[in-house]
């Protein structure tokens, strides 16, 4: 079984500040990390590998320094790594990114693709499902549990929503987007790190390696999204919880609260 895990190098947003004047991210001196949802996706793939034997390939698109997350993936146990990098791919929004990733994936063998639900720098949650659309395979988002079934022909995926869970059976090949709650990713090992940097190869795909792509569907040109404005989220105070009230009492409580704030 061949598993491709899409990962992204992101700034550690727990250490990012927003410039109050420009509204943009201050990225200087902020460490880069493997996106947490993606890391959970990689861990899920590695667990399938441990249990049943699988070939796990980590795939990323980004600038050359995104190599670091691929080395990290190999130090955790990925068998191969592919870096899609070219100036022509720069400035891509989610649609251009998924178009490019799908083209890269078409050059590879796969039974299952795992991506993270969303990246902590953009938070769109679009790239995974869009890749599945372009590859014309089914996708299941928000996985908090993955089991292989029918001797590897299908997956049973627990997908989580805010107020409910679905259990979905899906035929392979398919794409699953993982929540960081899916698992606790393993640590790398020191020896794994040394091997990943010193002995392992990364396959690099440039623009010229993906000739099926048109110039107007990649990079900035292929990106219809324009950022109108970005601003820091206003801090919301913690809400008040009133428990053990009857319906009438609760209604009165809400009414008087709204009156106190001059809403009613």
């Amino acid at each position: 079984m061949n598993i491709i895990v899409c990962i992204k190098q992101v700034p550690d947003t727990t250490e990012v500040r927003i410039d109050p004047k420009t509204g943009t991210l201050v990225r200087e001196g902020v460490p880069s990390i493997m996106n947490p949802d993606d890391k959970a996706g990689l861990e899920a793939a590695l667990r399938l590998k441990d249990a049943l034997g699988a070939h796990v390939t980590a795939l990323t698109m980004g600038p050359p320094q995104a190599e670091t997350v691929l080395r990290e993936a190999m130090a955790m146990g990925a068998d191969a790594a592919v870096l899609v990098t070219d100036r022509a791919f720069g400035g891509a929004d989610t649609i251009a990114t998924s178009t490019t990733l799908a083209a890269a994936i078409r050059t590879m063998d796969f039974d299952l693709i795992i991506t993270g639900r969303q990246a902590i720098d953009g938070d769109t949650a679009q790239v995974g499902p869009q890749v599945a659309e372009f590859l014309k395979i089914p996708s299941v988002a928000y996985a908090e549990g993955i089991q292989l079934e029918e001797g590897g022909k299908s997956l049973l995926v627990h997908r989580r929503f805010e107020d409910r869970s679905h259990v979905v059976r899906v035929k392979l090949p398919c794409l699953v987007t993982a929540l960081s709650e899916l698992n606790a990713p393993r640590y790398m090992t020191p020896g794994g790190i040394f091997e990943a940097w010193r002995e392992r190869e990364i396959r690099v795909l440039k623009r010229a390696d993906l000739p099926e792509l048109r110039d107007d569907e990649i990079g900035l040109k292929g990106s219809p999204t324009r950022v109108a404005k970005s601003f820091p989220k206003a801090m919301k105070p913690a809400g008040t919880v009133k428990a053990g009230l009857s319906a009438d009492e609760a209604a009165d409580e809400i009414t008087s609260c709204l009156q106190a704030h001059f809403v009613l």
Binding site: Y187, T189, P190, G191, I193, F194, E195
Partner: peptide
């Protein structure tokens, strides 16, 4: 995680890293 053999060669069950990496640990 192999921390108990960081600078020891792999053929002896270690991680095959260098002395400095072990000291960083």
């Amino acid at each position: 995680l192999g921390f108990l053999g960081i600078p020891i060669p792999r053929e002896y069950g270690g991680q095959g890293c260098d002395e400095l990496t072990y000291l960083l640990c």
